[in-house]
C-alpha cells in the first residue's frame, strides 16, 4: 500500500473542508454508507472512526466486520476534488480507557450532550486515488476504447 497515499489521507483529514464517509456491509451484504465527521488517521496509520450510537447500522455493521472479517470502505474527499478511497478491516473497538475518554470529551465539546459508543480503528489494506482528474487521465491512456468518438472528432464551429 502506498505510503504517499496514506500520508495524503492524513493531510486531507487535517483540512476542515474535507468530507469523509464510511461504508459498511449489513447482514445481507448490502452496503450502508454514512458521513464520518470525526474521521482521522492515528500515529499507527489506522483510520479512527468515532461511532456515537450503539444501535446505529454502522456500529452494528462494524461489529459484524470485526466478528466475521468483512471489509469496510472509507472515502475522503477534499475541497480540491481529491478523492481517496480506503478499503480495510476493523482492527479494534475501544469502549473504555484513556483514549476513549479523550474522544468522548472531544465529541461532547463539539456536539453538546451526546454519547460515544466506540472508537473504531480501521486497518487500511488498500488505498485508491479516485480523484476524477487522475482517473480520467489514466483511463484515457490505458483504456482508449472507452472514449466516445465525438470527443476525438474534428471540431466544426465553436463546440467544446
Amino acid at each position: 500500500m502506498s505510503e504517499d497515499l496514506r500520508n495524503a489521507i492524513g493531510s486531507l483529514l487535517k483540512e476542515p473542508a474535507t468530507v469523509a464517509s464510511i461504508a459498511t456491509l449489513d447482514e445481507n451484504g448490502a452496503p450502508h454508507s454514512v458521513p464520518s465527521p470525526f474521521l482521522r488517521l492515528d500515529a499507527d496509520g489506522r483510520l479512527v472512526h468515532l461511532e456515537l450510537l450503539e444501535t446505529s447500522a454502522t456500529h452494528r455493521n462494524l461489529l459484524r466486520s470485526i466478528w466475521f472479517e468483512r471489509p469496510v470502505s472509507v472515502t475522503v474527499a477534499g475541497s480540491d476534488n481529491r478523492v481517496l478511497v480506503t478499503t480495510g478491516r476493523t482492527y479494534k473497538a475501544l469502549v473504555s480507557g484513556p483514549l476513549f475518554s479523550e474522544y468522548y470529551r472531544e465529541v461532547r465539546a463539539r456536539l453538546g450532550d451526546v454519547g460515544l459508543a466506540a472508537v473504531w480503528l480501521i486497518e487500511p489494506e488498500q488505498i485508491r486515488d479516485e480523484t476524477y482528474a487522475v482517473r480520467k487521465e489514466r483511463e484515457e491512456v490505458l483504456h482508449p476504447f472507452h472514449r466516445h468518438l465525438d470527443r476525438l472528432a474534428v471540431r466544426h464551429g465553436g463546440a467544446p
Partner: peptide
C-alpha cells in the same frame, strides 16, 4: 496482584 480481567478487540 494480577490483571483484574481482559478486553478483546471488539470490546
Amino acid at each position: 496482584l494480577r490483571p483484574e480481567s481482559l478486553l478483546l478487540r471488539d470490546g
